[in-house]
Nucleic acid binder design. Structure first.
Lengths: 198, 198
DNA sequence: CCTACCGATCGGTAGG
DNA sequence: CCTACCGATCGGTAGG
């Protein structure tokens, strides 16, 4: 099993608090307390509170991206890729809820530099979705009129999940992924299969 | 023309700052400065900073709701209602960008009471959308398998607009409303008209 | 609406 | 990793 350094547990504590209360409303004293040390001791492991935020966003970004990369670069059909991507997205949210929340939320309370880096990382992740959308459109399996608005529509719905998904909800994450996939396929005009009622 | 009290201009200033920097990152000194007074003088017009936030959310909620109410209670077909609702939603966002942003964003940095009231107001607004969704489903013009997930999917996409919409963008808000309507109709399985390629 | 100020709390540091 | 503390800033108030 993975060794968990004190630094890791500080970052973990910060992730949970940032996710629950936001960046500004979380104090370094809150973070230290949850990690079991005093606030002054925090600075033996981190440089600033903003660095802590960036570290969380970087790790979450890595998680999401690593999960999607093999799917995107596989030889599957765009529709199948999409189905697995949605399942993967939901899996990360389920496994790393707090991290995902900090990552997916565009926090306007940070310094311009920090915010920019977080936005860049989110954009990299969104590009993976874009790629598959474009692939499907070019292959003619998705029927899209305005690619850019469609993309924003789908990604908003996708990112919105973090706001309402509860692991103990009515649907398992597999069922939710399936339903979400069906809806996304409709938006993309790709439901020409047995689901279509033509 | 409408008379604008000092109180109104304080609330307006707060709305713009909350929208741009978030609640915690905005100080009462920022708000006072933008309104052209000193921070101490603020409290002749407001009780607390949180009250200011609530006032903004209440006014925005009123704006959105007033715009949708006549559409929802009209005798139009569900599909037509939906089209007008989307146009109205976009119109409020265009006309009252800052207010809309404060209203639509679930800010985790507030006290539990304040947050609860804001959530209640947002839920009231979402209920108007729910109504029309249900209407269309019952009338058989929308083809929905999981009403609750479909609802969350569409509302996430809808609320996501505030995050990326720029009034000076490629599309006018009428064009955007039209495109958005088409996509929403797809999600709801209601595009059985000439748009369908069956 | 201003002057003058409050107690509390903030992120972060020095020295051990 | 703790003790002890810093300068800055916060939301809000008293008295005019």
């Amino acid at each position: 099993m993975a060794r968990k350094s004190r630094r890791d547990s500080i970052i973990e504590s910060a992730a949970e608090l940032f996710a629950a209360k936001g960046f500004r409303a979380t104090t370094v004293r809150d973070i230290a307390e949850r990690a079991g040390i005093l606030s002054g001791s925090l600075y033996a492991h981190i440089a600033t509170k903003e660095d802590l935020y960036l570290e969380i966003v970087r790790r979450a970004s890595h998680d999401f991206t690593q999960r999607l990369n093999p799917i995107v670069s596989s030889q599957s059909r765009p529709g199948d890729k999409l189905q697995w991507m949605i399942a993967a997205h939901l899996a990360v949210i389920e496994e790393s809820r707090a991290w995902a929340r900090v990552y997916l939320d565009d926090d306007s309370e940070l310094s311009a530099d920090t915010r920019r880096e977080a936005q860049r990382l989110r954009r990299d992740y969104e590009r993976l979705w874009d790629q598959v959308f474009s692939e499907g459109i070019e292959a003619g399996v998705f029927d899209v009129q305005d690619e850019s608005v469609t993309r924003l529509f789908v990604l908003s719905a996708l990112n919105g999940i973090i706001g309402w998904y509860r692991p103990d909800g009515r649907l398992s994450h597999e069922e939710l992924a399936q339903t979400f996939f069906r809806l996304t396929l409709r938006v993309l005009g790709g439901n020409k299969g047995p689901d279509s009622q033509c």
